[in-house]
Amino acid sequence: MGSLYGKMILRVCLFFPMPTWSRVSDLISEHGRSLSQWIHLGGVKAFLDGSLGSSSALFHEPYEGDPDNYGLQMTDLDSLLNRTLESDKSGLQVAIHAIGDKANDILLDMVDKIVDLNGAKDRRFRIEHAQHLAPGAANRFGKHGTIASVQPDHLLDDADHAWSKIGVERSERSSYTFRSLLDGGAQLAFGSDWPISDINPLQAIRSAVFRKPPGWEVPWIPAERLTLDESLKAHTMSAAYACFLDHAVGSLSEGKYADFVVVPSTSWDEFSSDLPGHVLATYVSGRQAYP
């Protein structure tokens, strides 16, 4: 392991399948959460539903043209609740995949139960994707500090076919509700979902700011656009917070690792109107790593 650490210049926060929660808990008890400055043990992850593209995301209403299909529930809810309670009780952070509006409502209800049974604490429960939300659901994320771990680049693909999957009205009111989540008090953290989407964070920031899929002349659901400041924070400080790593990364602050990039821009206003597509230099722990 020592030789591997010496070659790494990428920080990794690992989440393990939820059924292994007891082994992960033992590992953290034995070695701590940080195996080095590069490798951190985050917690456990589970899946509640599928995806929109495969018509397996779990919705309250059926898919368009398929009245018997509401999507798939990928795991037994009693089992998921029990494992989540045990994981949470042991101090592990929990992340669960939910894309459809019903799947997200189920998880928001589950968070209420977990807080009731295990008590209030800084747990930073993560809902991965939070892609389609029922009316009022965005406001529920702030109640217990639930993290909406979202991937802006997915909207570039979904904008072209969401209407055919769930209809125009549902897709327009429920899809990628970044502004509503922030306004509702959610912790909004950006990511890429690589290799499913482009790993380039500048592209994700651009997607959240402009929400214009390829070939579109107007934004998709413009009311849900974010400002540049909000998007940068979601991909830096909030992403670090979502991994319990905000003490070490996410901002240029005293006591944190000096991880940062240099982008071509002469002013903040210029950067906002024409986001750069490339990075001039990358620094990791204060040392130049690129070019």
Rank of each mutant, 00 (worst) to 15 (best):
D229F: 01
M237C: 08
Q131K: 05
G136Y: 11
T177R: 15
A234Y: 03
P213Y: 11
F210Y: 14
M237K: 14
L155I: 15
S149V: 10
A234N: 03
S164V: 00
A239P: 09
H247K: 11
S192A: 12
S192V: 11
H161C: 08
T227Q: 08
F141K: 01
L181E: 05
I196T: 00
E169C: 02
A242W: 06
I196M: 14
I196W: 00
H161L: 05
S238L: 07
L181F: 08
L228R: 09
D198Y: 08
H161E: 05
D198P: 08
L228G: 00
A204L: 09
D198E: 11
H154I: 09
Q131F: 11
Y241I: 02
A242Q: 08
A159M: 07
S207W: 10
G142T: 03
R225N: 09
A208Y: 00
S149F: 13
Q187N: 08
S174K: 04
V168S: 10
S251A: 12
S231K: 06
I199H: 14
A204Q: 07
A138L: 06
D198L: 09
D246H: 01
L133K: 06
L202Y: 05
S171M: 06
S149N: 12
V249S: 11
L202Q: 04
Y241H: 04
R211H: 14
K143I: 10
S238E: 15
I196Y: 07
M237S: 12
V218T: 15
W220I: 11
S238W: 05
D183C: 08
Q187T: 07
L252R: 13
E169L: 02
Y241V: 03
T236K: 14
I221K: 09
S180N: 01
G191N: 15
W163C: 05
F210M: 11
I166H: 05
G215W: 02
T236N: 15
S149I: 04
V209S: 13
F190P: 12
S171P: 09
S174P: 05
S253Q: 12
A137G: 01
C243R: 11
F141I: 01
W194A: 15
H154S: 03
K233Y: 04
Q203M: 06
G136R: 01
G142K: 03
T236Y: 13
S171D: 10
L155P: 00
F178L: 13
G185W: 04
F244L: 01
H132C: 07
G185L: 05
H235P: 03
D158Q: 15
D160M: 02
I205E: 06
W216F: 13
G167Y: 09
I147E: 01
E217Q: 14
S180E: 11
P219V: 00
P213C: 07
W216S: 13
T227N: 00
E172I: 05
L226F: 03
P222F: 06
S175F: 12
P201C: 03
Y241N: 02
G191D: 10
W163Y: 04
L133Y: 08
D183R: 15
G185S: 05
S149T: 12
D153P: 01
S197Q: 07
